[in-house]
């Protein structure tokens, strides 16, 4: 798409969500292929309108005006259950890894790094429930989240964080998996995530640093 998505929909950059949706609907009515069966250009125009709408809703539309290095102002990135983050990217984790730990944990760790998540869970299941440490719940949460097992992932991240409150990796994972719930809370109260009120601001800052550190950045978890 070489044209600015906002221009295609005919709305200004500061248009409200409702204005964007209304503009899309009006254009879709006009150009929908069902209504223009004889017009070969209508289908192409419709594709353009769809792509423009998607770009604005995904928060990628701002790249068009600010160049490829531009900063996307998307207020909220959903936690995607298949996204490609590296949970063991930080140097802290690697240092930890060299210390002695149970063979099941080591196996699970290597399976996760190799993207064999089910095998990681199988390895972990060999640890009797009475001997499961925070590390067990952490590894289980990571593997479950990569398999899309949302509920188990969140529950185990919570347990890991509760068992070892001083372990920042566990706290970060738990905060990251809570992202969608935080989004829901802001959605129900009508607070836009991009304009946080004072108590939301704290959460947003947490999430930003969580994302950075999981992507391999430093270990700067400063929070509430």
């Amino acid at each position: 798409m070489d044209q600015d998505p906002y221009t295609i929909l005919g709305v200004s950059r500061d248009a409200s969500d409702e204005e964007i949706k209304t503009a899309y609907r009006n254009l879709a009515k006009k150009y929908h292929p069902d209504r223009n069966p004889d017009d070969p250009n209508a289908a192409e125009k419709m594709n353009q309108i769809n792509a423009a709408y998607d770009a604005i809703k995904d928060g990628t539309a701002n790249y068009y005006s600010q160049g490829s290095g531009g900063y996307s102002s998307a207020g909220y990135n959903q936690y995607s259950w298949s996204q490609n983050w590296n949970p063991f990217g930080g140097s802290y984790q690697q240092a930890y890894q060299q210390t002695q730990e149970r063979s099941e944990y080591q196996a699970a760790y290597h399976f996760i790094v190799a993207a064999h998540y089910q095998e990681a869970l199988n390895a972990l299941s060999g640890v009797p429930s009475g001997e499961r440490t925070g590390r067990w719940y952490y590894l289980s949460s990571v593997a479950n989240s990569r398999l899309g097992n949302r509920i188990q992932a969140l529950e185990h991240a919570r347990i890991a964080a509760e068992m070892e409150p001083s372990n920042s990796s566990y706290q970060q994972l738990y905060a990251m998996l809570q992202q969608n719930g935080v989004y829901y809370q802001s959605y129900t109260t009508g607070n836009d995530m991009s304009m946080p009120s004072s108590d939301r601001l704290c959460t947003s800052l947490c999430l930003a640093s969580v994302c950075c550190s999981l992507c391999g950045g430093g270990n700067f978890f400063l929070c509430c």
Partner: peptide, 12 residues
Amino acid sequence: DFLEMLLGETVY
């Protein structure tokens, strides 16, 4: 928290 997490996806 997990009920809200699931609804977070729905409203998204």
